[in-house]
Design a protein around this nucleic acid. Structure first.
Lengths: 125, 125
DNA sequence: CTAGAACCTGACATTGACGTCAGAGGCAAG
DNA sequence: CTTGCCTCTGACGTCAATGTCAGGTTCTAG
C-alpha cells in the first residue's frame, strides 16, 4: 500500500510516517518513481510505534529497543533488552505519579462537591 | 522567604517560580527593592502546581482550575469545576493508555526472556 | 489527454515549560 | 567598603514530534 492508505489505517499523519522512516523506525520500498510502498504488516508496526511514543519513549529510545521486537533472540544486544526493562520501570513510576495526581484531583473535586451541596441542597428535586 | 529558599524547599528552579508568577499561578510580595517574598504556604502551593503540571495540565488550564483550590465555594465559577472534572477524566484515560503500553512492554520483555532462557539455560547455576 | 488527488523533498513554524546568559542592583559578613 | 552570593528583568535557546507550505512529479479516473 502507499503512504496515504497506511496513514489512514494506522491513524497517523503522512508526515509522521515519513518522520518515522527518517528516524529509522519504519522501512519502505520505493517504486521506480520514488513512492513509498508498504506491506500489510506495516500497519501493526506503526500502531506499535504509536504505542511506544504514547509511553513517552523518544524516537531514539524506540530505535534502540526495536531489535528486541524484531529479533527477540540472544543475539539481540543485551543493552537493548536492559533499556526496554528500564523504560518499563520508568513508565511504571510515571503511572504511579499520575495516579497520585488523580487522587489529588479527586479530593479537590470531592471538596468542591461538598461545598456546592451545602449551598444547593438537592437541586434536582 | 525569598525565591531561592522557596525553590529549594519546593524542589523547583528559581526560573520556574518566576514563570509560575508570570502565568498568574503564584503570587509574591515585593520588597522595596523589588525582591520577591513568599509566605510559608507558598511551599505547598508550588508543590501543588508541580503535581498539576505532572498530570499534564498546561499553565492555562491550571490557572482556570485554581479557583476551585483557592475558594471551593459555589461562587467559584462552574466552568472551573467542570474543567477540573474534565481534566480528571482526561488523566484517567491517559493512565489507561499508559497501562496498556506497559502491558505491551511486559509482553515484549517476557518474550525476550523466554528466548534468552532457551539459549542460556540457568546461567546463574 | 486532462483534471485533480496523492506523492515527493526540503525547510521553516509550532508548542510549552523551562535553561541559560547578560548586565545590573541588593544584602549580609568581615 | 568590599567580597560574594542572591535577586532582578529581558531575551534568546532548547527539544521533539508534527504542522504546514512551496514547488514539482506521479498516479488515476473519465
Amino acid at each position: 500500500m502507499r503512504i496515504g492508505e497506511l496513514a489512514r489505517r494506522a491513524g497517523v499523519s503522512v508526515r509522521s510516517l515519513r518522520y518515522y522512516e527518517e528516524q529509522g523506525l519504519l522501512e519502505s520500498e520505493r517504486s521506480s518513481s520514488g513512492q513509498r510502498h508498504y506491506p500489510e504488516a506495516a500497519v501493526d508496526r506503526v500502531i506499535l510505534l504509536q504505542r511506544l511514543y504514547a509511553g513517552g519513549l523518544s524516537s531514539r529510545t524506540i530505535g534502540e529497543v526495536l531489535p528486541c521486537v524484531d529479533r527477540p533472540s540472544a543475539d539481540t544486544s543485551e543493552s537493548a533488552f536492559e533499556m526496554m526493562v528500564g523504560e518499563r520501570d520508568r513508565l511504571s513510576a510515571h503511572i504511579e505519579d499520575l495516579l497520585r495526581t488523580r487522587d489529588m484531583l479527586d479530593e479537590l473535586i470531592a471538596t468542591n462537591r461538598r461545598h456546592n451541596a451545602t449551598l444547593e441542597p438537592d437541586p434536582a428535586g
